[in-house]
Design a protein around this nucleic acid. Structure first.
Length: 726
DNA sequence: GTGAGGCCCCTTTTT
DNA sequence: GGGGCCTCAC
C-alpha cells in the first residue's frame, strides 16, 4: 500500500492521522481536500483501525465518487469492493435494495429521474383535475421535492392556507401513486432510507455498529435531510470526518444548508476544526483574485488561501462584441495554447448555464478543435434512450405506469388518446396498474393492446436467462424502435445512440464485476440485485456522464457547477456579464448574490496557471439579442491582477433622459430605488401583490425588498423583476 | 388515430 | 432557439 504521508503538510497530516474523534476539516479550494480524504481512508485501513466494510464515504456528485474510488483503488492492495463509497443517493439506493421489504418497497423498484417525476406529477395533476394554470406541475414537483428534502411527509405539514392545503393533498396522492407503481424519485430514496433507519432500531444499531468511520466530502453541500441521515447512521462508536468549504457552497438552490457545518461542530462536540489553507493548485495572481472576490461576501466562516508558488501570469480579460466573437476568441486562444504544448484535456471552458455552450461548440467545431461537453442533455436522458429504457423497465416490472405510458403507443401501433383514457379509467376503477388493466380493454384498440401485452410478455420470457447486454439488445431489436427511427429523417443518430445503449450495458456488466460499485452479483452484505434492475438504477442515478469519448484528448466544456472539484492548467470563464453571471434568476433568491459570488470563486480557483475572463457586449438569448454590461465580479477583482486584452470597459455616459449615472458597486441606503419608494404597493407577476419594505442601489443596481404576505419577504432587482405599481 | 404545422412558453445550477 | 402542446386536415 502506498501511503505517502511524508508528502503531506503539517495540517494535512494532522487531519489524516486524527485520532478517535469527530473531525471537521475546513478545506480551501486546491488545498488537497480529496487527497486528505483518500489518504485518511488508506491510513485508517492500514493502521487496522477499521476494515473496508466498516467504512462509509459519501460524496455529493458521481464525479467525486468516481474520483475517490479510483484514487482508493490505486492506493489499496485490495479492491475497495464492499466499501460503501458513493453519492448520498447511490448509498441510499443501496440500503433500500438491501432492505426493500422493511422499507416497504418492491424488490425491483424503479427510480424516477427528474423528467420521469415531472411526467408522473403531470399525470397525477390531470387525474385529480388540477388547474394547471394556477398550479403548474413543475411548481408542484418543486413543492414535493422541497418538502421531502426537509424530511417532511404530507401528513407532517401544517397547511396555513387553502393553496398549500391543496398542494399537501396532491403530495399525499403523489406518494400513493409512487407506492402503487413501485417507483421512487431521487428525494424519496433519501427520505425513505432515513425513515427506515428511524423506525427500525435493530437495523439502525446494525449500521451504527458497523460503520466505525463515516467520511463526508463537500459537506457544505449537504441538505437538512442528508445531515439527519448521517446523524442517524452514526452509532455510538462511529466517527464522522467531514470535509467542506463554506466558500464553495453552491447548491443552496436545492436545499444545501451550509449551516450543517456549524450544527455538526456543535452537535457532535467537535473539539478542533482543522483548516487547510495552503493552496497547491493556482499561482499567486489567480489566488489573490479569488480571495479578493470572495472577501465581498459577508456570510463566511473566514479563511484565506495562500500559495508558496510565484505570482505567475496576470488574469487575461477579454471583451467581445458578441457571444460569437467571444467564442472565436476562445477557439483561437485554445489553438495558441496547444501550440505552446498544452494538451486540450488540460484546458477548460466554464460557463454559468448550459445554454451558453452551443455558440462555443460551433466556433470550436469550425476551428477543428476536439471538445467534450459535460452535462446538458445526458445520454440516458435522450428521448430514444428513455424509450428503450421504458421497454426494459416494463420487462423488469410491467406495473410501471410511467414506462408503460411512454411506449404503449411508441412506435405508433394504433392506440390513441381515446383508448388510453379508457385504459386509465379502468385502472382507476380497479385500483390497479395500467398493465393489469390492459387485458380488459375492448373496442378499436383491443387488438393492438393485446399485441403490446404479448410483446412485453414474450420479451420477459425470451430474455429471462440472457446476460444483460444481450437482454438489452434483444429488447431493442424486438421493440420496433429501430425500425421506427430508420424511417425518420434524423433517425441515424438515434439508432446510433441505441447501439450505444447496448454498449453501456456491456461496460456496466464488466465494471460491475470488477468494482462491485453497482453490486449486481451481491456484495458482502448479501445484497443481490438483478443485473437489469441494477443497470436501470445506474441509468437513473448517473444519467451517463462518462459515455463516448473518454480518454481522448479533448477540450473540456462544462458549467461552473460541474467543474467543482476539478482543476485545469488553463481555464476560460465566459459570459461574465450582468444578468448572466451573476444570473438574474439567482439574484431573486435570498442571498443569491453571495451564492453567485461563491460560484465565481469556484470557477476562478479551477485554474492552475492561466485564467481568462471573457464577456461579450451582446449575446443571443432565447432568440433575442441582449445587451449586457460586464459582470460586477470583474470589478471586484483588483485591477493590478488583470491584463485587458481588449480596451478596458468604460461605463457609458449618462443617458439623455436623465437615467441615474452608474455608480461604483456598493449600495447606498435610499428611501427609494428604481422608481419605487418604501411603503408603496406593488404587484409582481409571480408573487402577486406586495408592499415595498426597503430599497437600495441606483439605476440598474436598484433593489427593493418586498413583503408579499403569504409569498414571503423578498429582495428583488428592479431591473429584473417585473414589478408594477399598484 | 396520425402526422404536420403553428403557437406559446420557458430558459440556472444536479442527484 | 427549441421543445411541449394544441389544432387541424387527412
Amino acid at each position: 500500500m502506498s501511503l505517502r504521508l511524508e508528502h503531506l503538510n503539517a495540517e494535512q497530516l494532522a487531519a489524516v492521522t486524527a485520532g478517535d474523534e469527530h473531525m471537521l476539516v475546513l478545506a480551501g479550494a486546491g488545498s488537497g481536500k480529496t487527497r486528505v480524504l483518500t489518504t485518511r481512508i488508506a491510513w485508517l485501513l492500514k493502521s487496522g483501525k477499521v476494515s473496508p466494510g466498516g467504512l462509509l464515504a459519501v460524496t455529493f456528485t458521481n464525479k467525486a465518487a468516481r474520483e475517490m474510488f479510483t484514487r482508493l483503488a490505486a492506493m489499496l492492495p485490495v479492491n475497495p469492493r464492499g466499501m460503501w463509497v458513493g453519492t448520498f443517493h447511490g448509498l441510499a439506493n443501496r440500503m433500500l435494495r438491501a432492505h426493500h421489504r422493511e422499507a416497504g418497497l418492491p424488490r425491483e423498484f424503479q427510480i424516477l429521474d427528474t423528467q420521469d417525476q415531472l411526467a408522473a406529477v403531470k399525470r397525477l395533476a390531470r387525474s385529480m383535475s388540477v388547474d394547471e394554470d394556477r398550479l403548474p406541475p413543475r411548481a408542484l414537483q418543486y413543492f414535493i421535492n422541497a418538502r421531502k428534502e426537509e424530511g417532511l411527509r404530507a401528513a407532517d405539514i401544517q397547511a396555513p392556507d387553502e393553496a398549500t392545503r391543496r398542494q399537501v393533498e396532491l403530495y399525499a396522492a403523489y406518494d400513493e401513486q409512487c407506492r402503487r407503481e413501485g417507483v421512487s424519485d431521487f428525494a424519496e430514496l433519501l427520505l425513505r432510507s432515513y425513515e427506515l433507519l428511524m423506525r427500525n432500531e435493530p437495523l439502525r444499531e446494525h449500521y451504527g455498529a458497523r460503520f466505525r468511520h463515516i467520511l463526508v466530502d463537500e459537506f457544505q453541500d449537504t441538505n437538512r435531510l442528508q445531515y439527519r441521515w448521517l446523524k442517524l447512521l452514526a452509532g455510538e462508536a462511529s466517527r464522522i470526518f467531514a470535509v467542506g468549504d463554506d466558500d464553495q457552497s453552491i447548491y443552496s438552490f436545492r436545499g444545501a444548508n451550509v449551516g450543517n457545518m456549524a450544527d455538526f461542530e456543535r452537535e457532535f462536540r467537535v473539539a478542533k476544526v482543522a483548516r487547510l489553507e495552503q493552496n497547491y493548485r493556482s499561482q499567486g495572481n489567480i489566488l489573490d483574485a479569488a480571495n479578493a472576490l470572495i472577501a465581498h461576501n459577508r456570510n463566511r466562516l473566514g479563511k484565506n488561501l495562500w500559495t508558496a508558488d510565484g505570482a505567475g501570469e496576470p488574469l487575461r480579460v477579454f471583451e467581445g462584441e458578441s457571444d460569437s466573437e467571444e467564442a472565436r476568441f476562445i477557439a483561437e486562444e485554445v489553438k495558441a495554447l496547444q501550440r505552446e504544448g498544452l494538451k486540450l484535456a488540460c484546458i477548460a471552458v466554464l460557463y454559468r448555464s448550459n445554454a451558453q455552450s452551443r455558440v462555443i461548440e460551433h466556433a470550436l467545431f469550425g476551428a477543428g478543435i476536439a471538445y467534450r461537453v459535460y452535462g446538458g442533455l445526458r445520454f440516458f436522458e435522450r428521448a430514444e434512450v428513455k424509450h428503450a429504457l421504458a421497454y426494459l423497465r416494463l420487462v423488469a416490472t410491467p406495473e410501471d405506469d410511467n414506462a408503460l405510458l411512454r411506449v404503449l403507443n411508441f412506435p405508433p401501433r394504433g392506440i390513441g388518446a381515446r383508448s388510453l383514457e379508457g385504459l386509465q379509467d379502468a385502472a382507476k376503477a380497479r385500483g390497479s396498474s395500467l398493465w393489469a388493466a390492459l387485458d380488459g380493454l375492448t373496442g378499436r384498440a383491443a387488438a393492438p393492446v393485446a399485441a403490446f401485452r404479448g410483446l412485453i410478455r414474450s420479451l420477459q420470457e425470451q430474455t429471462a436467462t440472457l446476460p444483460l447486454p444481450e437482454k438489452v439488445e434483444h429488447v431493442l431489436s424486438r421493440s420496433g424502435l429501430i425500425e421506427h427511427y430508420k424511417n425518420e429523417r434524423e433517425g441515424t443518430d438515434r439508432i446510433e445512440n441505441l447501439g450505444e445503449l447496448v454498449n453501456a450495458a456491456a461496460v456496466f456488466s464488466q465494471e460491475d464485476r470488477s468494482t462491485g460499485l453497482a453490486s449486481g452479483e451481491g456484495d458482502e452484505d448479501g445484497v443481490v440485485m438483478d443485473p437489469l434492475t441494477a443497470f436501470l438504477a445506474h441509468a437513473a442515478l448517473e444519467a451517463g456522464e462518462h459515455q463516448a469519448g473518454e480518454g481522448q484528448d479533448a477540450l473540456q466544456m462544462m458549467t461552473v457547477h460541474s467543474a467543482k472539484g476539478l482543476e485545469f492548467e488553463a481555464v476560460f470563464i465566459c459570459g461574465l456579464e450582468k444578468g448572466l453571471f451573476p444570473h438574474e434568476q439567482a439574484l431573486l433568491q435570498k442571498d443569491g448574490l453571495e451564492e453567485e459570488r461563491r460560484l465565481a470563486y469556484v470557477a476562478i480557483t479551477r485554474a492552475r496557471q492561466r485564467l481568462y475572463l471573457c464577456h461579450a457586449q451582446t449575446r443571443l438569448l432565447h432568440g433575442q439579442r441582449r445587451y449586457n454590461l460586464p459582470s460586477r465580479f470583474l470589478q471586484e477583482i483588483p485591477e493590478g491582477l488583470m491584463k485587458w486584452l481588449t480596451p478596458r470597459y468604460a461605463p457609458p455616459a449618462p443617458m439623455a433622459f436623465g437615467a441615474a449615472p452608474k455608480k461604483a458597486p456598493g449600495f447606498a441606503k435610499a428611501r427609494e430605488a428604481g422608481g419605487f419608494r418604501i411603503g408603496q404597493n406593488v404587484i409582481h407577476a409571480k408573487f402577486g401583490p406586495g408592499v415595498i419594505l426597503d430599497a437600495e442601489g441606483m439605476g440598474g443596481e436598484a433593489r427593493v425588498q418586498v413583503n408579499f404576505g403569504r409569498g414571503g419577504i423578498k429582495w428583488l432587482a428592479v431591473a429584473v423583476a417585473k414589478l408594477q405599481a399598484a
